[in-house]
């Protein structure tokens, strides 16, 4: 408990440092590319356009489930924004300590903010897709929903979950090297089970019920519910999904901060 609070407190007092590190990382990561930071935006856009063509037109998602292609595109972009953000944040955050330990151990640097730096630097992807999604919405004649402030809540929830999950993973990755491969596969699957491309609400069976309760679908459909248009199916399971989401977040935070504090002084020995 105290460990978890300490770690949260560290995030708050080192917040300026996190921001500075993110700014610096943005500069240096894309330094060797001709197009520089534009890749951060191109990469997801290319992915989205492929999915849009295949699922929207090829498989007819934009006709059967959604009223028109613009609506489907904006619907997918919003979900993709949250999912890409979460995916990048969790994958980056989980490996952040492993990658940086050689450098960080030789100076006084709070280890627990490394996942936060990865999460914060993934926010650009979110913003790019989110703005794109909103633009598609507006150009398609769909206004922003009246419940838009909830979008901020869902973003915050995503960040909280990403942090506690990556903190938990970052220690496990160091202890068990194989874990990262499992995590990669699982995170890839969350795009499908999170309902990023195909609407989970159309699954009228137990599988759909279970998927709707998972934390990934919670934030993905949540932000659509808040920003695009209200989704009765999502709102029906809002309360249980919220409880499950935050319970998982707290469990990961508690266990993760315990593991982190237990092993942080001997991380380098495990590598």
């Amino acid at each position: 408990m105290i460990n978890a609070f300490k770690i949260i407190w560290e995030q708050i007092i080192y917040f300026p440092l996190i921001i500075r590190m993110v700014k610096y990382g943005d500069q240096s990561t894309y330094q060797n590319f001709f197009l520089g930071q534009a890749w951060k935006i191109f990469n997801p856009i290319l992915q989205v356009s492929v999915y849009f063509v295949i699922f929207g037109f090829g498989l007819g998602q934009s006709r059967t489930v959604h009223s028109n292609p613009a609506e489907y595109l904006s619907w997918m972009l919003l979900g993709m924004a949250i999912w890409r953000f979460m995916n990048e944040a969790i994958m980056g955050g989980s490996q952040s300590i492993k990658h940086q330990i050689g450098m960080v151990s030789k100076m006084k640097f709070p280890l627990s903010i490394l996942p936060a730096i990865s999460i914060a630097s993934a926010i650009w992807t979110f913003l790019a897709l989110f703005i794109l999604g909103t633009a598609t919405m507006l150009s398609g004649g769909i206004g922003v929903s009246q419940e838009w402030p909830w979008a901020i809540y869902y973003l915050f929830a995503t960040i909280a979950f990403s942090y506690s999950f990556s903190l938990f993973n970052s220690t496990i990755v160091i202890l068990i090297p194989d874990y990262i491969s499992i995590l990669r596969v699982v995170m890839m699957m969350t795009m499908w089970i999170g309902g990023v491309i195909i609407k989970i609400g159309t699954f009228n069976n137990v599988i759909g019920d279970i998927l709707r309760l998972l934390p990934f679908n919670y934030v993905v459909d949540g932000i659509r519910d808040a920003w695009l248009r209200s989704d009765t199916q999502f709102e029906a399971t809002f309360l249980p999904a919220t409880l499950i989401f935050w319970s998982l977040t707290i469990i990961f935070l508690l266990v993760g901060s315990f593991l982190h504090n237990k092993f942080k002084k001997s991380f380098i020995e495990y590598l």
Binding site: S247, L254, F258
Partner: peptide, 27 residues
């Protein structure tokens, strides 16, 4: 490694696990 997974942590984690199980079952 002066850290222990304290009693309160256990209680909270167990409670939350139960909460997850219960809510998912009900839902």
């Amino acid at each position: 490694q002066n850290t222990k997974f304290g009693f309160i942590n256990w209680v909270v984690v167990i409670l939350l696990v139960n909460l997850i199980a219960f809510t998912s079952k009900t839902a």
